[in-house]
């Protein structure tokens, strides 16, 4: 469970970026964060991860076994312990391009093996096999030996998800994982994230209200550093207008077809191989 409580962040010049952000993410939830650009969505995630120091407020991660981590105040070893429990799905282009796909996936478990081994020996065959399993889950196992930099955007995004899966976190965080992808790839990624959220809660920033309406269990909207909506994923046009203001027209794109159209990018039909995806 993730408890975010009155997170506040201002710039030295007094501009308020986050103005008391509070919300909770619990087991079984797939929570989408919406908001105009510059609203403070990424900054909220960065404060949760300890990449940016919040001025006030707290974020707490409570493990299924009851252990709890104060995310905004922990440092050093404690911070690494906390981070290892949060699987961050970065945009795909943040992978290490010169490494093989499999190496990029195995990075997910760096904090779970002995530092000396990570330097000298690397990962065992058993771990590599598990990493291939994670790649299989995103339909990328045949790419395991490819140099990551040679992949397409959609393929890299899948590898980024495989890294987070391999990490075995107790919470997934994603910042615009489908922002750089075409509609059919976006749909495939959403269909990957949804089943993950059944066992491990997912908190993701999205720019497509029609996607969060269809896949998320809950939506949070942030406007000028404050939560202005927290509830059912289906938002009315008036509510979206309130959230996005002038940006609304850029956000409301036609809903992509339920299945990737024939003849589109020959990416694997990810959703079909995963159990329980919505039809």
């Amino acid at each position: 469970m993730l408890h975010v409580d009155r997170l506040t962040k201002s710039l030295p010049d007094g501009r308020v970026l986050l103005n008391g952000i509070s919300f909770t993410v619990s087991r079984g939830e797939f929570v989408g964060i919406l908001g105009a650009s510059g609203a403070g969505k990424s900054l909220t995630l960065r404060c949760i991860l300890g990449l940016t120091k919040a001025d006030a407020g707290s974020a707490r991660l409570v493990e299924p076994d009851g252990r709890s981590f104060e995310l905004t105040s922990c440092t050093g070893r404690n911070q690494r312990e906390a981070r290892r429990r949060m699987g961050v799905i970065f945009q795909g282009f943040n992978l290490v391009k010169r490494l093989r796909v499999l190496d990029n996936v195995m990075i997910g478990r760096l904090a779970q093996i002995h530092p000396l081994r990570s330097w000298l020996y690397g990962f065992t065959d058993a771990e590599a096999e598990e990493a291939v399993q994670a790649l299989r889950q995103v339909k990328m196992e045949t790419y395991a030996d490819r140099v990551t930099g040679s992949l397409s955007g959609g393929e890299m995004q899948r590898v980024a998800i495989a890294r987070a899966i391999f990490q075995r976190p107790s919470l997934f965080l994603a910042d615009e994982p489908i922002a750089a992808l075409d509609p059919s790839n976006s749909l495939a990624i959403m269909k990957l994230l949804q089943p993950l959220s059944r066992t491990t809660p997912v908190l993701g920033v999205f720019h497509q209200p029609e996607m969060t309406a269809r896949f998320c269990t809950r939506v949070i909207a942030i406007k000028r550093g404050a939560v202005v909506y927290d509830g059912a994923p289906g938002l009315s046009h008036a509510e979206l207008e309130e959230i996005y203001g002038d940006e609304l027209m850029q956000v409301l794109r036609p809903t992509p077809p339920a299945a990737p159209p024939a003849g589109s990018e020959p990416g694997p039909a990810v959703g079909l191989l995963l159990p329980n995806h919505p039809s």
Binding site: L49, L51, R80, E81, A82, R83, R84, R85, M86, G87, V88, F90, Q91, N94, L95, V96, K97, R98, L99, D103, I107, G108, R109, L110, A111, Q112, P115, S118, W119, A160, R163, Q167
Partner: peptide, 24 residues
Amino acid sequence: RVIESVACVGASRWQVVRYAVLPE
């Protein structure tokens, strides 16, 4: 962001060097 993405799995500074900095 590449360095951050490795640090975010809980990797130490030296692991970041080994798995993100040196390969690049």
